[in-house]
Amino acid sequence: MTRLERRLLTDRIWRMIATTLAALAIVLLAWILWTVFYRGATALSFSVFTTPTMPPGRHGGLANAIVGTLIQVFLGLIIAAPVGLYAGTYLSELGRGKFADAVRFVNDVLLSAPSILIGLFVYELLVKTTGGFSGFSGAIALAVLILPVVVRATEDMLRLVPGSLREAAFALGATRAQVVTSVLWRAARAGIATGILLAIARAAGETAPLLFTSLGNLSWSFDLTAPMASLPVTIYQYAGSPFDEWVALAWAGALMITVGVLLLNIVSRLVLAPRGKAS
């Protein structure tokens, strides 16, 4: 074998290894999705969406958990999104110097901080001081998870808006506030919306921070000061239970969460796709 042949053979082998690994990653995704769909679909029925969780043997559903997740994610979002939007705008439009660098770094830390610590933090901040687990503290924990995602997305997306747009608005006599609210936020709205969708996807699938804050509730609860059920926590409790019926419901819940989270991810990609990253 000549030296060239050996080199070409090495190249082929590495390409094959890389291709195999990528194929394995696709198989992994397909395998997880298939498991969730197969096991979840057999347990899924209309009554799962209309009946609350019940003791084993009484054909309960997941309705209160679904509603609980929707309430907590929505509340977390309306608390965190405006703050995140403002902080991200600060970083993009005014963010120079040490203070802004510190904010950027701290935001990155929050973005990657283990979510279970957010749960402990909100437990110490709200649950311990108010004397009980509550849906509101669950929403706050999710807000802490959502905030850094929105900050990052807002900053990144505003930076993509061309400077000439800002200059044109200033030339018309607009104040900084007007430039931001009626020009920049509008120009970047698709990108910021993407960030918010991804933040929702992240919060909806989180379990650990809710264990110590909203705790979970086996019956209906719309009271924000009382423990509130959520889909991930219910899945966690049911998956580890000895009752087949509950395990089946956990898979049904897993199917809902997975479909929801992946759909949000795909939609956010579609929202951003027509504009492209270079706009």
Binding site: L29, G205, I235, Y236
Partner: peptide
């Protein structure tokens, strides 16, 4: 990237 978005509890159950 979709694989990265799968919630950790799903990985746990699987």
């Amino acid at each position: 990237q979709l694989l990265a978005a799968v919630p950790s509890i799903i990985f746990g159950m699987w």
